[in-house]
Design a protein around this nucleic acid. Structure first.
Length: 264
DNA sequence: AAGCCTGTCAACCGCAAAGTG
DNA sequence: ACACTTTGCGGTTGACAGGCT
């Protein structure tokens, strides 16, 4: 997948992960925790680069990841957040528990971007019709301040210049943002689920022959995500409400990427 | 049935921020 | 303050599936 692997990865596997690799990675992380991605493949007996392992874990194997269709609530939230902060997928993902930035990005590119674009055009046509209706008859431009969009695809569209400055991208641990899950092992391979359910030793022998040293204890501290409690209340509603206030501040809001200030 | 087209999504890359010594 | 390493992010790619001609 993607581009050709970089030069330093000779001898390492690329492309889709198989079940055996997934199991090795899951077992290793359950035993030793996340992090130290560079050394992880060697220790786990994987012929992958650390980056690939991290990506596989973060985007697919983490137990708190929610699989399945994106709900209409989530979709609505994505659209609103994207209109507010643009392609900041990780920030958007952090507002959608169980969803990954990659998943949201893909969903946006394949499902939402076109729909939103279509919607924009429709709205623009309607706006033009209204504007034309109220255009002063002397031919002078309407006094209201219109400004071309940066994007040429909508260069003819005119919107007001209320600006919201985007925050700089910051790294925030998903755990610090209330990332919760209710059934962390819901979709893990049955073998692993059994192990988790039984609170049993992860150890034994990996398929590569390595011995796993640590045991899994759900009440223990090896995995912080095991300690999470379900979110109280309807988080999506809260978030939508939160941003609704911002979006309603002015009918037309123009986003402008800049320093970490918010001004309207 | 076969070839082409299009949409989806996992996985890759480069780059930059954060962390560490 | 600096250099080096690690981690996280966003853009992009390409395999695959399904629809269309």
């Amino acid at each position: 997948m993607g581009r050709a692997p970089c030069c330093s990865k000779v001898g390492l596997r690329t492309g889709p992960w198989n079940a055996k690799e997934d199991t090795l990675l899951i077992n290793y992380i359950r035993a030793h925790g996340e992090g130290h991605w560079r050394d992880l493949p060697k220790r786990a007996g994987l012929l992958r680069c650390g980056k690939s392992c991290r990506l596989r874990w973060m985007n697919y194997l983490r137990p708190e990841i929610k699989r399945g269709n994106i709900s209409s609530d989530e979709e609505d939230l994505i659209i609103r957040l994207h209109s507010l902060i643009g392609n900041r997928w990780s920030l958007i993902a952090k507002r959608l528990p169980g969803r990954t930035d990659n998943e949201i990005k893909n969903y946006w590119n394949s499902h939402l971007s076109k729909r939103v674009e279509t919607s924009k055009v429709t709205q623009t046509k309607a706006a033009r019709a209204v504007k034309k209706k109220h255009q002063p008859t002397n031919g002078k431009k309407h006094k209201r301040n219109y400004k071309d969009n940066k994007d040429n695809t909508t260069s003819n569209e005119e919107i007001t210049t209320t600006k919201i400055y985007l925050p700089k991208a910051v790294r925030v641990s998903p755990y610090s943002l209330g990332f919760h899950h209710t059934n962390p092992y819901a979709w893990w391979p049955d073998l692993l689920k059994e192990e988790a359910d039984n609170n049993s030793e992860v150890g034994g022998t990996c398929s590569n022959g390595d011995q796993l040293e640590h045991s899994l204890d759900n009440s223990g501290s090896d995995f912080s995500f095991l300690d999470f409690e379900p979110i109280e209340g309807n988080m999506l509603d809260e978030i939508i409400g939160e941003y609704q206030q911002l979006l309603n501040f002015d009918e037309n809001v123009q986003l402008e990427s800049s320093e970490d200030s918010l001004s309207v």
